[in-house]
Amino acid sequence: MTPPPRLFDAGGTAAAAFRSRPAGTPNDNTPGTAVVTGASSGIGWEYATRLAARGWGLVLVARRAERLDVLGKEALKEGAAGVETLVADLGSPEDLSRVVERAAGDDIDLVVSNAGINGYGPFSEVDAGLLTRVLNVNVVALTALTRAAVPGMPARGGGAVINVASLLAFAGDLPPDPLPRRAVYAGSKGYAVTFTRTLAAELAGTPLRVQVVCPGLTATEFHLGAGDTPVSGERRVHDEGGMPAADVVTASLAGLGAGEVVCVPGLTDAEAVARPAEAELGLRAGSGSRMAPRSSHGE
């Protein structure tokens, strides 16, 4: 049986605290309420504690109830207006529907879709069910949560969506070793990048902000499992190391405030983000009504 939502508050009821708060975005002076998925470790945990310190109310989503309880109490100590925990597996349609319903609430001003699983391994050998879970969590859930939250945000004066992807979205045909075998995972993160960029263009001129974050290797527990089951025990970091999760979140929130749609926390050359768009313009030159001469050489 799925545990019911748990509310923590710093005085009064958490639900009342959520409903009475004005809309905001992470760098505004009027914090609101944020949904953070994958909150029980790593980047999600850092988003939660950082937003808590800015006075936001939090709806924390993850599979591990015990960790959510610990995080909820920590977030209140950091200054969160209130905390609600939802124990949910976003790979489950039933659980996802509960979280989507909450994300559609008229108090939600920010959705951080951080939950993700990797399903690493040779494509022809990884269990097909695990690959389906990768798509359900990394693609379906991210899309559904964005769709739930975005329609109501303009009427409340604004809002934001942060989708956490990966630099593996740009890994393309680079061979494995040291990169993982990652066809479906990289494809799912490529979707997150294209979806977010395209949605940001669609929402240009509105008070909504949309961002996709593409960290490289990050010091979390992500590589300690494939994602079919949660990593057990206390929070820890995989042996591969990487950028601290706190730095990823710092870059993301700063970039969101600056209007940065694609955030690559470790990228020194800011102009590099614009170059894929320039390449796309060249590729779209192939949308004409006639086949290019080079394509007929095989006849």
Rank of each mutant, 00 (worst) to 15 (best):
A155K: 14
C214S: 11
G91Q: 04
H223V: 06
A53K: 11
S124T: 12
T194H: 12
L203C: 07
V212E: 08
A277E: 15
A128G: 12
A219V: 07
V99W: 01
S41I: 03
G129P: 03
R284C: 06
S289C: 04
A144C: 09
A65L: 05
P5D: 06
N29V: 08
L76T: 00
A186F: 13
E46H: 04
G225F: 01
L68M: 12
A62S: 15
E260L: 10
A17H: 02
R236S: 13
E260G: 03
S92V: 06
R275A: 13
A149D: 07
V112I: 15
V264I: 15
V161C: 08
T196N: 11
V231K: 03
A103W: 07
S296Y: 12
T132S: 08
S113K: 02
A149R: 01
A10Q: 14
G72C: 08
P265R: 04
E278P: 01
R197M: 10
E66H: 09
G12A: 13
G266I: 10
A251K: 07
T30Y: 10
G38F: 06
G24C: 09
S20P: 04
T37V: 06
P122T: 07
F18C: 11
V261T: 07
I108R: 07
A285T: 05
L208Y: 03
D28C: 12
A15N: 06
N163F: 00
A14R: 04
C263R: 00
A14E: 05
A274M: 11
S97I: 02
G57V: 07
V59L: 15
G190M: 06
A34Q: 11
P265H: 05
G158Y: 14
D247R: 13
L86S: 06
E221P: 03
R50P: 04
G255S: 00
T2M: 09
E280F: 14
T198I: 04
V59G: 05
A201W: 03
S295N: 11
Q211C: 14
V87P: 00
V164A: 08
R133M: 12
L131Y: 02
D109C: 05
G72I: 06
L60T: 02
F195M: 13
D127W: 10
T196C: 08
G121A: 15
D9K: 04
P4W: 01
V126T: 15
I117K: 08
P276L: 10
G255L: 00
V193W: 02
P215R: 02
V70I: 14
T206Q: 07
V126M: 09
